[in-house]
Simulated scan of single mutants.
Amino acid sequence: MKKEEKVIVGISIGDLNGIGPEIIIKTYEDPRVLELNTPVIFASGKTMQFFKNHFKSKINFFNIDDVNKISHGKVNVVNVWQEPVKIEFGKEDKRIGEYAIKSLEAATNALKDGAIDVLVTAPINKHNIQSDKFNFPGHTDYLARALNGKSLMFMVSDELRVGLLTDHVPLKDASNHITEDLIQEKIATVTKSLKQDFNIRRPKIAVLAINPHAGDNGVIGNEDDTILKPTLEKIKADGNLVYGPYSADSFFGSNNYESFDAVIASYHDQGLIPFKTIAFGKGVNFTAGLDKVRTSPDHGTAYEIAGKGTADESSFKQAIYTAIKIYRNRQDFNHYSKDPLKKASK
């Protein structure tokens, strides 16, 4: 694909009873967004027509049965199913979860086949998607399996980037998951992503401690002294700009994060609470570590406001922009990696 051509953005519909369809429609009602990419929504024409009518939208959908028949300049909808679907806004429904998975699987297959360039996923309900055939905590784990990669949840915004050593595991088990191999793997993934996806040639990374106050010399746990610190020293000795472990309670309040290109948190809430406090509505969930680009908004299904027409599409729109930017950055990175003299001459 030539750089001036539009990026083809595949979109999985998410939970139909949540705010996903609303924020998709609102995003592409803005003609400026459509000028930047070609959207392909994996759902059905009938279902999207229901949402168009409900939200009194003037958006026009271009319905197709084959992803290879997309039309540039239009909001394409691939018919993943044909039957009508009963929508009950704000209700958790196992049947609706099945449609979310149908959409995700179809979009992922199109991504693997190269029919779409990037994937942006609308929010799912992690409970109603579970079945004998689909048993993953969420998008990140599913995509790692489907795309044969080692994924990392990377929350990104203009102000802050946060990666996680452990993501969707119970807090009581988080420290047991943190090993030297895991730390090495996650830091390597973040480092590579900062270089190829965000065009940062010499990334500087901070790592947050596992225990309060980094364990206070073993008084509040010894995992930081026995696992995290020695591993970071090894990584740093290899020439990487990796620092820590930092006590998490003061790291963000002191604006210390502004001195780094990325922050790696030891567990989910340690990283995502400050991220969403600082960047909520402007943040994007990016799945780093894969050879394909996937982003999503930084929020969930928001059942409590579903169907009311009040959902804010800002984060979903930013997820579109971020996916496009990362895709372009990877094109440049791969191009100049093959011929570094071209980069040097710019």
Rank of each mutant, 00 (worst) to 15 (best):
M155E: 01
L228S: 00
V118E: 06
A319Q: 02
K282G: 06
N148H: 15
N37H: 03
Y327M: 12
A323H: 06
L232E: 01
I25E: 05
K91S: 01
P245L: 06
Y257M: 07
N285E: 04
K58S: 08
N285I: 07
D298G: 04
H127Q: 14
N128D: 15
K346F: 02
R32F: 02
F252H: 07
L143K: 05
L36D: 11
V77L: 06
G97S: 10
I23F: 08
A144C: 08
S266M: 15
Q130I: 14
I273N: 02
L232R: 01
F275Q: 07
L160E: 03
I187P: 03
E98Y: 05
D93N: 14
G18I: 14
K338M: 11
I210Q: 13
D249W: 04
S254W: 00
N255H: 12
I326K: 03
F62N: 15
A146K: 14
N17S: 07
P31D: 10
D312C: 08
K46E: 14
I87V: 15
V118L: 06
D113R: 15
G309K: 09
Y267F: 14
G138P: 06
L194C: 11
A265N: 04
V33C: 07
I326E: 03
M155Y: 13
A279N: 07
V162C: 12
K69I: 06
E233F: 03
H213N: 10
A110H: 05
A262K: 06
D291L: 02
I24R: 11
I116G: 05
S247T: 13
I25M: 05
I324C: 09
P170I: 08
D15A: 02
Y327W: 14
V263I: 15
G215I: 04
I87D: 10
G244F: 03
F134K: 03
A265Y: 05
Q331I: 09
L16A: 10
A265C: 02
A323E: 03
T108V: 10
I19D: 00
I59S: 14
S337A: 14
I19R: 13
E159G: 01
R330N: 04
F42K: 06
Y336I: 09
